[in-house]
Amino acid sequence: MKPAPAPSASALSWRRWWRSAGFAWAGLRRTWSTQPNFRIEVWLGVVASGLCLALRVSPAPVLLCCGLVLGLELVNTAAEALTDLISPEWHPQAKIAKDAAAGAVLVASIVSVLVGLAVLLPPLAALIRPALSSQP
C-alpha cells in the first residue's frame, strides 16, 4: 500500500482539489461503465430535465431529485464493492448492507418520480386539455 501523500499547506490548494476531483471522476467513470442502473438513471434525468425546459417549468426540483438518486447510486456501488471486499463469501449481514443501500436508491427513485409528476403533469395537462376539448 502506498503511503498517503503529505498534506498540503492549505486545504484550499488547487493541486489538492484537482487530485480529489480526479478520484471522483474515476469513480463516476467506473460506475457509468459497470452499473446499468446508473446509466438508466442518468438518461431518465436528462429526459426529465429536458421536459422541464420544454414545458418552461423550474428544473430545480427535478435536478435536486436527480442528484439525490445518482448520488445514492454511487454510494450503493461503493457499499457493494466494500461489502464484496470485506465479505467475499455470502453472509447475512453483507446481504443486509447491500439491500439497505439498494433500498435507499429505490426510496429516492420513487420520491423523484412523484416530484417529477407533480412538476410536469400540470403543464402537460394544460397542453393536452385544449387539444382534447377542440375535438368533436
Rank of each mutant, 00 (worst) to 15 (best):
K2Q: 03
A4P: 09
A6M: 10
S8W: 02
S8I: 03
A9S: 14
A9R: 12
S10T: 11
S10Q: 11
S10C: 12
S10Y: 02
S10G: 09
A11V: 13
A11K: 09
W14K: 14
R15P: 03
W17E: 15
R19G: 10
S20K: 13
A21N: 09
G22L: 09
A26H: 07
R30V: 09
R30D: 14
W32T: 11
P36W: 05
N37L: 14
I40S: 10
E41L: 13
V42Y: 01
W43P: 00
L44R: 03
G50R: 01
L51R: 01
L51M: 14
C52R: 00
A54L: 11
L55K: 00
L55F: 08
S58K: 06
P59E: 07
V62E: 01
C66H: 00
L72H: 08
L72T: 01
E73G: 09
E73C: 10
V75L: 14
V75D: 13
N76H: 14
A78Y: 05
A79G: 10
E80W: 04
D84L: 07
D84A: 07
I86P: 00
Q93C: 10
I96G: 11
A97E: 11
A97Q: 09
K98W: 02
A100N: 14
A102E: 15
G103E: 07
L106V: 08
L114C: 06
V115L: 08
V119K: 00
L120F: 01
P123A: 07
L124K: 00
A126N: 07
L127R: 10
I128P: 15
P130M: 05
P130W: 06
Q135R: 15
Q135K: 12
